[in-house]
Every structure is written in structure tokens, then in C-alpha cells.
Design a protein around this nucleic acid. Sequence first.
RNA 1: GGGCGAUUAGCUCAGUUGGUUCAGAGCGCCUGCCUUACAAGCAGGAAGUCACUGGUUCGAAUCCAGUAUCGCCCACCA
Length: 877
Amino acid sequence: MPMNINSKYNPAEVEKKWYDYWMQHRFFHSEPDEREPYTIVIPPPNVTGVLHMGHMLNNTIQDVLIRRKRMQGYNALWVPGTDHASIATEAKVVGKLKEEGIEKNQLTREEFLKHAWDWTHKHGGIILKQLRRLGASCDWERTKFTLDPDLYESVIKVFVDLYRKGKIYRGYRMVNWDPVAKTTVSDEEVIYTDEEGTLYYLRYPIVGSENEFIEIATTRPETILGDTAIAVSPLNEKYKHLIGKKAVVPIADREIPIIADDYVDPEFGTGALKITPAHDPNDKEIGDRHQLDLIDIFNEDGTLNQYGLHYEGMDRFDVRKAIVKELDEKNYLVKTEKHTHRIGRSERTKAIIEPRLSRQWFLKMKELAGPAIEAVRNGEIKLIPKKFENLYFHWMENVRDWNISRQLWWGHRIPAYYYGEGENDYVVAENLEEAVKLAREKTGNPSLTEKDLKQDEDVLDTWFSSWLWPITVFDGIRHPENPDFKYYYPTNDLVTAPEIIFFWVARMIIAGYEFAGDKPFSNVYFTGIVRDKLGRKMSKSLGNSPDPIEMIDQYGADAVRVGMLMTSPAGNDLPFDIELVYQGRNFANKIWNGFRLLKNMKIDENKAQPEYAAQAVKWFTNRFLQILSQVEDDFEKYRISEALKKIYSLVWDDYSSWYLEIIKPPYGEKIDRTTFEQSINILENILKLLHPFMPFITEEIWQNIKPRSENQAIIISSYPQTGEFDKNLISEFEHIKNIISNIRKIRKEKNIPNKEKLVLYMVENRKLNPELLSVLYKAANLSAIHYGNYEDAALSFRVDKNEYFIPIEKLVDPEEEKKKLQEELTYLEGFLHSVRKKLNNERFVQNAPPQVVEKERKKESDTLEKIKIITKRLEKL
RNA sequence: GGGCGAUUAGCUCAGUUGGUUCAGAGCGCCUGCCUUACAAGCAGGAAGUCACUGGUUCGAAUCCAGUAUCGCCCACCA
């Protein structure tokens, strides 16, 4: 049926229609059955986030993988969901409340959480809606949120379990303290700049020896009041005799040990380092190694506390000035030097960050990491590309204990319950009831009640719930025997960004072995970072990121998907350019017009299939299988961009430029039924190959190219199967294409209209399948093909060892023809020379594998033959 | 400073265990075409000392060493 189809593909009309159709028919939904599962869990985006270019790339890849497997007969499941993202979400809620004039600290925990939930319900899930626009075929019926009751319960259960196994402990950790905001800030929120400061050289008297001092250098003289040791390098001869002795802290008048530690650089400053474990991260580590005391000299606002002695209550920077003066007066200050060093300032308040000790919960990582390292080492889990394995091993082998507590309210509240003020006056339990029971046992006080217990105020790090994601989305912590978990776990592929290889990927692997007894996934595909043309990371704050939804509105999801994938090999950054989306859009249009051509053809039921069409069908069928096998290989190796490029070229070059042009009936004629049906078949296969990349346009065409019954859809159709193909046929067809190109070139050079028929003479040194000549007639518009040499004036060209002539009466200039032949000859002689150079090299003939030598011999003889042909031709002219 | 990776056409990248005319693709650029599917198109074309230096080898874009530049991760010095 001819119909009126616009020559421009219009994605906006099409995309919503088919997404709704897929949803209505629950094609994305999966339930365990007898098929083999193929499972991906989404890296859960922040619940209140919006879609950015990184998500686009990431989720397009996941959708390509899942759609392909679905068509290949797997029970494919892609589990979507969101992450509560404690820090990011809490910051947003705090900011929004501030705008309304409400400070967080005016609210109770319950009041604040209500605001947070309201916010989550209002903005949460926007990103999931946006993913639908991209075409993501997630099983939305299984959408999870990391704060869902079942996930919450699982996280708490895991905490308790780890605590009972002795893997969770309380300890102190340096945090970035903002004395103006009176809060901790994350590492990411600290901005470092080089600033000019002063290095103060101070001397500490040695206990027990008259007039002997040890000299140190510091940029922060006020912190001497918190000193608990002086460290020197054990290799430093200068101080060897002092190790084990004591020194006196000036002003504070405390005695502190002189210790040896490798951390100290004997070359820097004086070679001796004052140790203030409460106020410097490195000093803290040294302090831990040597069991030094901790003296915290600061209040929350950066003024000194009682350990500041007579400076109590003064600001840290005022104290610095004052104490330098006092040290100088008392003759402890040796000298000062200008010194440039990096200073960390709070992003928000610009206040200089104060390293401050704070009590936190930690998870011991060393033992847990063992099986996770082994799994990657023995290939049970593959990282793609492989280069990330080095990074993984390096981190895992030097893994530090994980600080899992955060001073926030939005998240999973730490299930520790305190019944007293003492260091160990707490119990860890899954709920309050259980906690009471445990507390009674621990204290021996049976009258203890819920009212006597106070739950820890902190919540768990967001990653402490995400690391369980592949397990908890199937409820595998609470009910490890449930059918979903048994069927879908372990999942197959994970697609994520290399930035979170430690935060998330490594920890998921650990959790998988620890809590599920098996890996969480088999392959991890790392995408790159999406950058702009200038190489900058696309980010909201830079404003250099296009709005993905606007792009989809304008160019269609298929175009955007193709644009994202066209040039993004695993692990490589993607320099995004809108040109890529244009290319995707143009490609969609190309496919669309191929469809239009077929759709508008009129069929002659009585017409027999022309030979050229039969040959074209045969060729394309083989060519398709050839490309299909290459594409399968690419997918096997996760070379997704490569697969797309091959399909792109198959569709554009082989299918559109060659196949369709050949089978297209001459103007005004109808097409025969056989060719038409075969062409539809071919198109269907092409659409299937394309569907994972371009789900919408392929569904639209597939549904319209022939009548379909309800419940049929390309999304659930079966993917083409690889098979044997005739390489020889493909190569012969290449030869024919080559002849056609040469004839087109001649037409162009000589200004011969395409409508004018030409005669071709050919000298066949390589025999061609005569049936293929029908294609030649059709595509080159020939009136006759003669075998044999053409002796008179003619234009000639050579393909392989064959020689072809196009006789043209007037327009042939023998000189021009001679020149062309001469050029060819020169090239061939040069080539022959290089081949012979190899063959004359005895060592080559002896050492190279026989096939290689054989190939060179063949090259030699072929070239000689070609040279002979040209020489003969030249003689005649 | 430590570790990892990269460097191939104007741009973005392939080049799969050294061996086909191996120097490729897409985009861009140049030329000619509004040819009855598609100008978001068609037909042609130009363009690279494979970062540099040396080595291994019969043979190197491919393997090794060094140098330069860039990127990423970690530690960033009292």
C-alpha cells in the first residue's frame, strides 16, 4: 500500500507511542522462569538528581546490553532505583529550609526528616522519568530506593552482623572542621590554594642536660600546646643520641618523648618534627603508631580551650601572633622564614579548615578485601578495560578501614544504643526491643527500659547501603532463599564510572562475597567521563552541559543514543559534541528513507525476479552474516562503539548505497513479489541488529513494514543468528562494486549522463561469476558487456588482474590515458621492488613462516602480471 | 614525589597475539550534482615521518629502553 510518509523522520511523534506500548505490554518486566537470566542492576542515581550527560552515556550502554540479551532469548532484567545520597540530599534540604528562614538546628530530628521526605517525594524519581525518555527498558515494577523499609532493614542487619563479627569499631578520625560554620566538611568541599606563610623555628630544652635543645620548624606555633612528642628520622645521625630522651614543651612546660619515625624527612626544616596528634592527620598516624596522648586545644569555633592555658578563649590566629611574641621573649624562637604551602579553605565559608579529631564508626577492611582481590585476580570478575585492574589491586592491597558514620540525619541511623556515658556503655541491635534485652544482659539491670536507651545520632555513609545494592534489590540479606535472589543473583554486567571504582565497585565485590557468598556481577564495564569540546568535565556548575531532555526533544532519543555511543570505547573519555547527535539524527533519517523506498514500491505479482535482484539478495544475505559475526565478537569484548560503527556502515553503505540501489526497479516499473518479500526480510534483520541502539525508530518501522498482530514487537523478537557465509561471493561482489565505481568515475570525468548507456569490454584474468554481470548491467547502466580486448581508443581501468575498457568515440585523449597508465605502472614497479627486496633477502626466506613467504611470492607474480597488462596497453597507444 | 595510562589525518578514534597495497574509519574540508527513498542526501577528492631517540627482529604503528608532552589515581611534607 503506498502511503504518504514524510521524508524527514519525526521522532517526537513516534517515541512516546512505542514507550507506552512497551509499558502496557509489560515487555520490560521479568519474572524467574526456566530461561537463563541476564541481569543488570542500575547504578542508582541520587533520588533528587536530574539526568546529566554521564547518566545518558551510562544508561544507554546498559539499555543496549539488556535489549540485545532480551532479543537473544535471555530472561533479561534491568533493575532500576535511586539512592538516598545522604550528604547531597541533606544539603539540598538544608538549603531549601534556609530559603524559608528555617535553620536545621531549630528542628528536631523527626521534623527535619519529615521535610526531607517531603522533598524526596516531590523531586524524587524525576530522574527515573527522564530515563524513560531515553528509552531505558528497566523493569519499573521492581524500582527500589535505598531507604525503602526492606533495604533499610537489610542495611541495619548487615551493620549488626559485622559488629558481632568484631569488624566494626569506634575510633577517632581527623575530619575537616569548618570553625565558622561549626561543622565538618567533606574532602571535596575543601579548596586548596598555595599561600604565603611563615615557618617558625623553635627550640625545646632537652630534659636532663643543661643547655641542650632540639630545634623544630612549624607553621602553626600555637599548636605546640597540644604537642605530645617530637619525632626524628631513625636514620638521622644528628639526633640519634636524643631518641628515647625527653624534651620540654615551651610555655606549657610539659615533658614529651623524643621518638624515631620513618615519616620524618631528615632533609626538611631542622629534621625534627613536633607531633600534635589532635591537630594534624599525619601526626595522628604517628601518634597511633607510638601510642601518644591526644591533646585537643581548640573549641568548636576555633578559639582555644583550657589546654590553651592563658590563651584560653582567644582565636587561633590571634594566639599565633601572641605566642610567637612570648616564645621570642622567652628565647625559644630561633628564627623565622617565609614559606609557601597549601592551605585548605572551606568552599562555603572560606574559613581555614581545622583538622579536628572526631569519634566515628569504622569497618575493618583488610580481611574483607581478601576474597574480592582474589576474584578479580583469577578472572571470576572482569574489569573492562583491563587497565583498571591495576588501580583496583593497588587500592585493595592498601585498603584502609572504612569510616562508615556521617554526622547527618538523612540516612540509615546507626543502630547503637547508649545507656550511659562510659566508653563502652552501649549495645548494637537491630531494633530498640532487642537493644533493651541486650542492655539488660550487659548491665545486669533487669529494670532497664526503652527510655533509658539513646540511639546514636549519626547515620551511615551512603555507600554503606549502596554496597549491598545487587543483593538488597532482590531482598537477599533478609531472605537469601527467596526465588528472585536465587534466580537473578549473581548479576551479569555492571556499567559505571571509573570515579567510583573504590567507593562503590570494590565494596560491592566485598559485600557480595561476605553476605551472599558469591560475586555480585561478572563484568564491570567502565564508561568514560563526558567532556566538552575544551576537554572540561561536563558539570552543572560550569554550565557546559547540554540538557539531555531538550536534546531528546529536538533530535530524538535514538539520535542522542547513537551520538553518545559513536565514539566512546570503554574507559575512554567521551568528548561530546552536538555534531555527534546530528550524525545520529541523519542516520535515523537514512534508515527512515530506506523504509520509505520499500513502503512506496508497487508490486507486480506476475513479474519474475530479475537476475540482478536475486544476486543482490544473495550477496547481502552473506554480507549481513559476515558483519553479524564481527558484531557478535565486538559485543563479546564489550567493544560497543565498534559494533555500532560496523552496523552503521552496513546500513548506510552496504544496504542503502548498494543493495537498495540495485534492487530498485527502473523508473516507473513495479517490483516483483519475490524481491519485495526478501527485501522486507532483510530489512527486518537489519532493524533487529539496530534495535538495541535505536529502539524507537526500529519499532516504528518494524510495526509498519508489514502487518503485525497485537503483542508482537521488535523488542521481544528474536535476534538474528550467526551462520556460515560465502567469503568468495562477498569478494567477487567487491570486485563488481569496484568496476561500477570506476565506471561512475569515468562518467563523472567525461561528463557522461547516468542515463546514457555504455558498453564494457573485459579481459578476465580472474574469472568472475557470470551471474553477477546482471548487477553490473543494472548498476552501471550498460547496454552490452563483451569479453576480450578492445583495440581502439577507449578509457581503461584495472581491478585486480582484470582489465576493463569503456569505448568512447570522441572524448578520448591518448596522452591523458597514457599518463594515467604510466602512473599506475610507476606505482606497481615501486611495489614490486619492495616485494623483491624482501624475497631477495635470504634471512627473510629462511626465517619467516612459509605462508608469509608464499604470500610475498604471490604478490610478486600478481604484480608482474599487472605490469605486463599495462605495458601491453601502453605499447598499443 | 609515587603509581597507572595515553601520544596515529584538521577533530574524535580503530588498528584484536609483529607479516595482504597497513597506514584505516567517522566527522570536518575541497570538487561536482536539487538523478523520481533520503541535500539530514548522492558521486568523487585531498590529507598522516604512526610524539622523539635508540634497541630487538628477516620484518615494528604494534615488542623493549630512554626522552618529551598530556591525562588520571594516590600522597601531597612539618
